[in-house]
């Protein structure tokens, strides 16, 4: 009973926060903004574990991956029909003029989310940064391999799911949120 009360209270709190943040949004617009909010809240909640500040729990990783999967890839793209944009949305019109890149990022996030789920049992690694190769002394020029990848449009390396699933969870987590940041940088207006 106590649990139900707490859950209800938490739900109300989330809804209230959503209402404030997305005041005026309706229908599909509200749905996609709530999707972003859900991913942000989940990211905030799991970040301490991914940073090794809390005990690792594979189930939490899978739950987090499921949230990302729900709101990325095709489900995300379906909420961005051609030109559907209005306040309070902070989506840039560049989404539709550069749909190829936007959709690639959405799919890439889904791929990372799937990999996170597959890799959940791998646990946390030795905090190998996503771009450690750049700093490992093997950088032979200004334009290292990662840089070329970054200029390729998606902001992160293209990797197969199989390769990704072999990585540590924290590395995948970092790469996932870097996709979020790459997308926000190009396609979200700053308030």
């Amino acid at each position: 009973m106590k649990f139900k009360t707490l859950t209800f209270a938490a739900t109300i709190a989330v809804l209230a926060t959503t209402a404030v943040a997305h005041k005026g949004a309706k229908g599909m617009l509200l749905e996609r903004m709530n999707g972003m909010l859900a991913m942000g809240k989940a990211t905030k909640a799991i970040a301490p574990m991914m940073r090794g500040l809390e005990d690792y729990d594979a189930d939490r990783t899978s739950d987090y991956a499921a949230i990302l999967q729900t709101h990325s890839g095709d489900p995300m793209l379906a909420l961005f029909p051609d030109g559907m944009n209005a306040a309070p949305s902070v989506a840039k019109d560049a989404i539709w003029t550069n749909w190829k890149e936007f959709s690639a990022l959405a799919v890439q996030l889904e791929t990372y989310a799937t990999a996170l789920d597959l890799a959940a049992q791998n646990g946390l690694g030795n905090a190998a940064p996503a771009n450690s190769s750049m700093m490992g002394g093997d950088m032979t020029g200004m334009m290292g391999a990662d840089m070329i990848g970054m200029m390729g449009g998606t902001g992160v390396d293209e990797k197969t799911l199989e390769t990704l699933a072999g990585l540590s969870v924290n590395t995948l987590f970092v790469q996932s949120v870097q996709v979020c940041s790459a997308c926000h940088t190009k396609f979200r207006a700053e308030e």
Partner: peptide, 26 residues
């Protein structure tokens, strides 16, 4: 390193660029 803020948001705009093309490589 990652672009994650304490609220769980990910940097966009100029700061997103700073992290993506700069500080994440430090």
């Amino acid at each position: 390193e990652t672009g994650i803020t304490p609220t769980g948001d990910a940097f966009g705009g100029g700061m997103g660029e700073v992290v993506q093309m700069g500080t994440r490589f430090l």
